[in-house]
Amino acid sequence: MASSVLQIVSPIKGAPKPIGPTNKKPMRPSNQLPQSLLDAARAIEKVPFHAEKHVTFQPPSRVYTMKEIGLEGCGISPIATSEPFQLFSQEAVQQCRAEIFSEPVLDKYQFSSTFTKNMIRGISAEDAPFVHALWKSPQVANAVSKVAGIELVPAFDYEIAHVNVLVNKDGEGEKAEDNVGFSWHYDSFPFVCVTMLSDCAGMTGGETALRTGDGEVRKVRGPTMGTAVILQGRYIEHAALKALGGQERTTMITPFRPKNPLIKDETVLTTCVAISDNSRLFYDYCLYRAELLQERMRLQAQWLREQKEAGAPFDTASVKKFIEEQREFLDTTLEQFI
């Protein structure tokens, strides 16, 4: 008997178009990070990653659904976001800080944009082996997937561990005219996992604001050291609110995409191109897209073979629909280079 029709599972509503930074090319930060921050991170003795010791996952107290925020039918999962949940041990956090704030990493990977003054991104596995081993571990992928309600994998290597660093200077935060620390935006990736790498004692604020389907704003509590939140940010407009108090707030953000190749993947590079080494970014993006397309075509060939062997008539409508979906996928890929 012939198998059922091969289909790409798509959201009822397509993803909104994200808006990237207004700078046209990557910029280096004009303000230096405090030397005391760097000295403390660089004094940490480095150790190899061990999932049993460094991944301390505990499920969140609750998750929020797309339906609850008025966005039912959007996205690849019914889960919108979560309360903070335990993900990494304190030693894991310190190891991440040691690599992120090392001199070679800051020399190569520190950027700035019109969205945020200080970020570290595109860190290679050679310069941050602990960070890459952590995010590529099955234990972390399983934890993030469990909270997100769908099986996910890190988007691709270049985007592992994007870091935003906000440094407060003598009450600067309290003098700000608004409470938005990172502008309202949609992400380029289906899901993100945001992890806190700072001690949040004495901090207030720092929530994530979500725009609901009816235009209202809801706040979700921000993570504390070693904890994380997930957000289906490709489909939810959101902003990071300012955190007041404390000297620095360092968050590590890794984007995720669906593992199943037959789930529609609306990953784009809109928010990435102006803040990246584009040669490396494009290589990784195109490689994962090619591998995903290869797997889809393999599954399509398998389905066609089964149909033929079962003596089923050729299903022109289904094949045309599949090809059109792949053409859309390729067109989206091509648009990222314009």
Rank of each mutant, 00 (worst) to 15 (best):
Q302W: 13
E324W: 11
E126L: 11
C74N: 13
R28N: 04
E83F: 15
G73A: 08
K108T: 11
T208P: 01
F322L: 14
A148V: 04
E237V: 10
W303T: 13
T250A: 15
E68T: 05
G245V: 04
R296N: 02
K108V: 06
L241H: 05
A128I: 13
V63P: 08
T22Q: 14
H238D: 12
V268F: 01
R296V: 04
R305T: 11
L293K: 12
H185L: 09
P29Y: 11
G205R: 00
V5A: 10
V165R: 04
K242M: 12
M119F: 07
I44M: 01
V55S: 10
Q336P: 07
L304K: 05
F85N: 13
K25D: 05
A92N: 03
A128T: 13
P60W: 07
R218H: 06
E99M: 10
P84N: 12
A15Q: 15
M203I: 00
T316A: 12
T204E: 15
L6A: 00
L299C: 07
D187P: 06
W184D: 13
K169Y: 06
R280L: 14
V268M: 01
A2F: 10
A274S: 15
L210M: 07
F156E: 13
E151C: 04
F256N: 08
F314I: 11
Q300G: 08
Q336E: 15
